[in-house]
Amino acid sequence: MSRIDETRDFIPVRIAVLTVSDTRKAEDDRSGDTLVERLTGAGHVLAARGIVRDERAEIAAQLRAWIADPGVDVILTTGGTGLTGRDVTVEAHRDVYEKEIEAFGTVFTMVSMQKIGTSAVQSRACGGVAGGTYLFALPGSPGGCRDAWDEILKWQLDYRHRPCNFVEIFPRLEEHRRRK
């Protein structure tokens, strides 16, 4: 069973939040606000924040820019994970992933089933790793962002979480680049 090991120190993670939308502006980005409130409330650092249109190339370009930024450890995107023609965030994420975290989508679906029943099948939330940076594509609804953070990411981005977490393996994400 998972738990917080109070003998370990909390390690703040630097997280960028990207909203994918053709219509949202900073003043009405409720999902982005939800993620910022949650991550800063947990003690993490907001490394960057932005909004891009539902355009695959634009999304991938912003992801690549933040992956290359040593001040960003994790990228959370909100929006574009559904089934409509404009929903291309998942494809943009997969354009940049070196490795996909398949279980993230599965666990997110399990969490969503408890909240919205079979409507959970309409989300394509996903996660992956590129350039030593974790990336997670979350739904565009504040509720979906809350569920992803509260039930999964809050724990996996906490170094004290046992039996394991994403933070403790940061140093090993790029070990393949150090091999000779």
Results as ranks from 00 to 15, higher is better:
residue 68 A to K: 02
residue 84 T to H: 06
residue 90 V to K: 08
residue 89 T to L: 15
residue 68 A to L: 07
residue 88 V to Q: 11
residue 97 Y to W: 15
residue 84 T to D: 06
residue 81 T to A: 05
residue 75 I to G: 01
residue 96 V to E: 13
residue 70 P to T: 00
residue 89 T to R: 14
residue 96 V to N: 08
residue 98 E to D: 12
residue 85 G to D: 10
residue 73 D to V: 00
residue 76 L to E: 09
residue 82 G to D: 00
residue 98 E to V: 07
residue 76 L to D: 09
residue 91 E to I: 10
residue 87 D to N: 11
residue 92 A to L: 12
residue 96 V to I: 12
residue 94 R to I: 13
residue 74 V to N: 02
residue 92 A to T: 15
residue 81 T to V: 08
residue 96 V to P: 02
residue 67 I to Y: 02
residue 87 D to R: 00
residue 73 D to G: 10
residue 88 V to T: 11
residue 72 V to T: 15
residue 92 A to I: 10
residue 89 T to Y: 08
residue 95 D to N: 04
residue 89 T to C: 09
residue 81 T to I: 05
residue 73 D to P: 02
residue 74 V to K: 03
residue 91 E to M: 14
residue 92 A to N: 06
residue 94 R to L: 13
residue 76 L to V: 03
residue 72 V to L: 03
residue 73 D to I: 02
residue 86 R to G: 09
residue 78 T to H: 00
residue 68 A to M: 12
residue 91 E to H: 15
residue 69 D to M: 09
residue 73 D to R: 07
residue 83 L to Y: 12
residue 83 L to Q: 05
residue 81 T to W: 04
residue 70 P to M: 04
residue 72 V to D: 01
residue 80 G to P: 12
residue 85 G to K: 14
residue 76 L to T: 11
residue 83 L to D: 02
residue 82 G to A: 02
residue 88 V to G: 05
residue 70 P to S: 05
residue 76 L to K: 11
residue 76 L to I: 10
residue 80 G to D: 01
residue 96 V to S: 03
residue 97 Y to C: 15
residue 72 V to I: 08
residue 77 T to K: 14
residue 71 G to W: 09
residue 69 D to P: 00
residue 97 Y to D: 12
residue 70 P to C: 03
residue 87 D to F: 00
residue 90 V to P: 06
residue 78 T to C: 11
residue 83 L to W: 06
residue 86 R to C: 03
residue 75 I to Y: 04
residue 93 H to C: 15
residue 77 T to G: 05
residue 69 D to A: 01
residue 68 A to E: 14
residue 91 E to Y: 13
residue 71 G to N: 11
residue 98 E to Y: 10
residue 85 G to I: 07
residue 96 V to G: 08
residue 85 G to Y: 15
residue 86 R to V: 07
residue 93 H to R: 10
residue 86 R to K: 14
residue 67 I to H: 01
residue 71 G to F: 05
residue 76 L to Q: 03
residue 67 I to W: 00
residue 68 A to S: 08
residue 88 V to E: 06
residue 78 T to G: 10
residue 75 I to R: 07
residue 83 L to P: 13
residue 79 G to R: 01
residue 78 T to V: 14
residue 69 D to T: 01
